[in-house]
């Protein structure tokens, strides 16, 4: 528990760092007032608008105000929509969650089974067929995979809608697109981790007891090879939950990824800051869970002990 407390404190410091960096970079990136004001607005109108948004104050004051509000749980109002950014994010997050879950299920299932198969059948035809497929999956950028899928499965075969939200059917293509990358990563990690374990001495001991291949995999190998797989899956989950910018844009999926793009291009500072803050919170949270899982899987890993 003490360990978790310390980790949460670390997380707060990390997020503070992230929000500081984002705050200053954003304010360097341009002036939102000029984008917001109508083209025929007078200099006075612009000055009034700037004052309303608090952007006329010195940067330091703005920064302290921003940090202070975060601790009050107030992430501010969107410049553009004039509603609390938290509400905007809350309305978009479920879509990202759906997409992330879809992609995660696909990539876990295919990643782990392909990885396992190609490890067990190392050097056999199964591996020789599966690994190139994995390589293709990993080499193709999401925009290309997405476009190919739309072209064949929705334009030619009319199996799935090409974009937008509408039931489970519309979730499939973006999930596949998003999963193709993670699947490859998970499969490769699973494969190398399992192969690594197959060479260990305890495997020979198990065989000498009369253990068969199936039991060896389930009882001996799986747990031993789990840690690198958990690590990589954790990272993938964090990535997926942060919103898939490209995939969501291709499929007009109203998740966080799309929201990120929109908020950046309109210089909606509070919204961008909130999204980044959420992303880093997810990332840190997933990492914490991963670390806790390590200790569950491997009793040799003691939590709360400093690495030094």
């Amino acid at each position: 528990m003490k360990y978790i407390g310390r980790r949460i404190l670390q997380a707060i410091i990390a997020m503070l760092g992230v929000s500081t960096i984002v705050f200053f970079i954003l304010h360097l990136s341009g002036d939102p007032v000029k984008l917001m004001a109508p083209q025929d607005a007078s200099a006075k109108d612009i000055a009034v608008l700037r004052h309303e948004l608090g952007l006329d104050q010195p940067l330091g004051t703005q920064y302290l105000h921003f940090i202070g509000n975060i601790f009050k749980g107030d992430l501010g109002y969107s410049y553009i929509q004039n509603v609390p950014v938290i509400n905007i994010i809350a309305s978009r997050f479920p879509y990202t969650l759906d997409l992330a879950l879809g992609a995660l299920i696909l990539s876990l299932f295919f990643g782990i089974s392909i990885g396992l198969l190609s490890a067990i059948f190392r050097g056999k035809w199964i591996e020789k067929v599966l690994m190139p497929i994995i390589l293709i999956g990993q080499s193709m950028p999401a925009f290309w995979t997405g476009i190919l899928l739309i072209m064949f499965l929705s334009v030619h075969l009319h199996l799935f809608p090409s974009s937008g939200v509408g039931g489970i059917k519309s979730l499939i293509l973006p999930s596949i697109t998003l999963a193709s990358l993670s699947t490859a990563t998970i499969a490769r990690m699973t494969r190398s981790s399992v192969i690594d374990q197959l060479d260990q001495d305890y495997v020979r001991t198990a065989y000498s007891k009369g253990v068969g291949k199936g039991r060896l995999l389930v009882r001996h190998i799986f747990r031993n090879s789990a840690i690198p797989i958990i690590t990589i899956v954790g990272l993938e989950i964090a990535n997926l939950l942060g919103g898939a910018v490209i995939t969501e844009t291709i499929f007009a999926w109203p998740g966080l990824g799309q929201l990120t793009i929109q908020s950046i291009s309109s210089r909606d500072f509070p919204l961008v800051q909130a999204i980044v803050l959420l992303g880093s919170a997810i990332f840190i949270g997933v990492n914490l869970i991963t670390d806790l899982l390590y200790a569950k899987v491997d009793p040799r890993i003691k939590l709360g002990r400093d690495a030094s």
Binding site: Q200, D201, Y202, R204, T205, A206, Y207, S208, K209, G210, V211, R219, H220, R223, N224, V297, D298, P299, R300
Partner: peptide
Amino acid sequence: RGNTISMIFQEPMTALNPLI
């Protein structure tokens, strides 16, 4: 194996499964 004939290995450090 393990029944009629069994084996003891050189490295007791690595010959046992570390997680069982």
